[in-house]
């Protein structure tokens, strides 16, 4: 049941893009409420509106129908209470790594000393304590996404949004970053909404799993994962059945 302490409440969300050849329905009838501290992972076939959903929550787009509330406040646009990690790294190349992480503190007028301190902490949290002086274009893809996560976390948002953050990375780096996100989530207790194509990743990371159907995206599966958060859910007996349920839901949705 949605309650006001829920970190995120979506009611009757529908979204249509105005395309060249008429409206493109991307999402339809999305009802979802997420308690604080949950990690919701959204899975679905390509074009099912996953990115659209995240952009609506971030406030980059206004929904055609329905209401979104974050922390009990209706979403009217982007804000520092919802940090975003994009699929394509959107670091500012004209700033150093540290200045990128400090950006959300600078906009809030946080004094310089405090900014440095927080940026240092966040970078250490993602394993990049020594990279502060580097330029963003000197970083590998995995390092960039780490910096993007640190940057999104710096203003201490209530909700962290991640759009296929590891989609472009190799398997090994991807696994390492998954571990880091799990550790981060346990340590900070942040509410997280992330997107992935990878069912295994979804089950490893999510405490709540949602599958969207093909266009227009509707929720076809909404499950709470009972798996313990650590050390690695893959070792749990419940892992394989949950992953299989998710995988068949995605397959059915794509068909």
């Amino acid at each position: 049941m949605p309650s006001t302490d829920d970190a995120l409440v979506l009611t009757g969300i529908g979204h249509e893009y105005r395309g060249g050849s008429g409206p493109v329905p991307a999402l339809d009838g999305i009802d979802l409420s997420l308690a604080a501290g949950e990690h919701l992972v959204v899975v679905g076939p390509s074009g099912s509106g996953k990115s659209t959903l995240l952009r609506l929550i971030a406030g980059f787009l206004r929904p055609t129908r329905g209401e979104i509330a974050a922390g009990g406040v209706p979403v009217r646009g982007p804000g520092p209470d919802r940090g975003m990690v994009f699929q394509q790294p959107t670091l500012f190349p004209w700033l150093s790594v540290r200045a990128n992480v400090e950006f959300g503190l600078r906009t809030a007028g946080v004094p310089r000393e405090r900014r440095r301190e927080v940026a240092g902490e966040r970078l250490a949290q993602v394993g990049l304590a020594d990279a502060g002086r580097m330029r963003t274009y000197e970083l590998s893809g995995g390092m960039r996404q780490r910096v993007a996560i640190a940057r999104a976390l710096a203003p201490d948002p209530g909700v962290l949004l991640m759009d296929e953050p590891f989609g472009a990375l190799d398997a090994l780096t991807r696994e390492r970053l998954q571990d880091e996100v799990r550790a981060l989530w346990s340590a900070t207790g942040k509410t997280i909404v992330s997107i992935t194509h990878d069912v295994d990743e979804a089950v490893r990371l999510g405490s709540r799993l949602v599958v969207l159907s093909a266009r227009p995206g509707r929720i076809v599966l909404d499950e709470t994962s009972g798996l313990p958060r650590s050390p690695d859910p893959r070792a749990e007996p419940g892992f394989a059945p949950l992953r299989d349920r998710l995988a068949s839901a995605v397959r059915a949705a794509a068909a």
Binding site: F60, P78, G83, F86, F103, G104, T107, A108, R151
Partner: peptide, 14 residues
């Protein structure tokens, strides 16, 4: 890049 602006806006940039 619109997403550079989006990133800035969700980091609280006026």
């Amino acid at each position: 890049d619109p997403d550079h602006l989006n990133a800035a806006r969700s980091l609280g940039a006026r």
